[in-house]
């Protein structure tokens, strides 16, 4: 569904992505693991159009996304749940959801979707008039997911949804991820929590220092090796 080929993104002279190629299959959960600074968030921001790639292509069902504005990419059916959630702190939960549906013009459909989000995330329903900045970390994460879903994405990108959350909440978030996938959403997930990620993922990639270094299915590599490489990188693991 998503084909990334030889993608290079740089901050000034420093290349954070040094030719990344990977594929995300439709209807599946694909996971990207790697140590800090490997370029995972850069990759997500580049696919979403917030960062512009220097080279390479990003194709969604054959249509080129590289070079498009973030707004155009959203209209192509890609939504990103950003790292650290980034909810609009001084807007109510309801308004945050409305903002997620910014590009839609079917008022009835948007309202129906907001009701569906409330049904899926009851905490959000209870707090619909509360300012998003006053929610707990887990609630903000759910809001960020719901906000992204409001644009009716074909492909949902998630950048470290478990970051800074308590283990119980993390389990809940991963339940939601599996559930969304069962309902037909393709998910491409960046995670530090390799253990949880390998439980839900259909396939995964390892990324180290701006390059993809492994591609496979969760059973293919022993979990401790994945964890070692995901947290420490190959070079230090070998030494």
């Amino acid at each position: 569904m998503l084909d990334v080929t030889d993608l290079v993104t740089a901050y000034g002279k420093i290349e954070a992505l040094k030719g990344v190629s990977l594929q995300v299959e439709g209807g599946k959960i694909t996971c990207l693991l790697g140590p800090n600074g490997a370029g995972k968030t850069t990759l997500m921001m580049t696919i979403a159009g917030v960062l512009q790639p220097r080279r390479g292509s990003i194709r969604l069902k054959g249509a080129e996304l590289a070079g498009l504005s973030p707004a155009r990419i959203v209209s192509q059916g890609v939504a990103l749940v950003p790292e650290n959630r980034l909810v609009f702190p001084h807007m109510s939960v309801y308004e945050n959801l409305l903002a997620g549906a910014y590009q839609r013009h079917d008022k009835a459909g948007v309202n129906a979707d907001i009701e569906r989000m409330y049904a899926r995330f009851p905490q959000l329903h209870e707090r619909s008039e509360q300012m998003a900045g006053t929610l707990s970390g887990g609630e903000q994460q759910m809001l960020a997911v719901a906000r992204a879903l409001m644009s009716q994405p074909r492909l949902l990108l998630m950048d470290e949804p478990s970051l800074g959350l308590a283990p119980l909440i993390v389990a809940e978030i991963f339940n939601i991820i599996a559930e969304l996938n069962r309902d037909g959403t393709t998910i491409f997930l960046v995670e530090q929590n390799a253990h949880m990620a390998l439980q839900v993922a259909h396939q995964f990639f390892l990324m180290e220092q701006g390059r993809i270094t492994f591609k496979g299915t969760p059973g293919q590599l022993a979990e401790d090796e994945v964890i070692q490489r995901a947290y420490l990188g190959t070079r230090r693991a070998a030494g």
Binding site: A48, G49, V50, P70, A71, V74, S75, A79, L80, P82, L86, V87, F88, P89, H90, M91, E95, A99, G100, Y102, Q103, R147, A148, S151
Partner: peptide
């Protein structure tokens, strides 16, 4: 208001 509070997230909302 979205742009003033969280520019990156508002881009991601389209």
């Amino acid at each position: 208001r979205a742009v003033s509070q969280q520019p990156t997230a508002s881009q991601l909302c389209g």
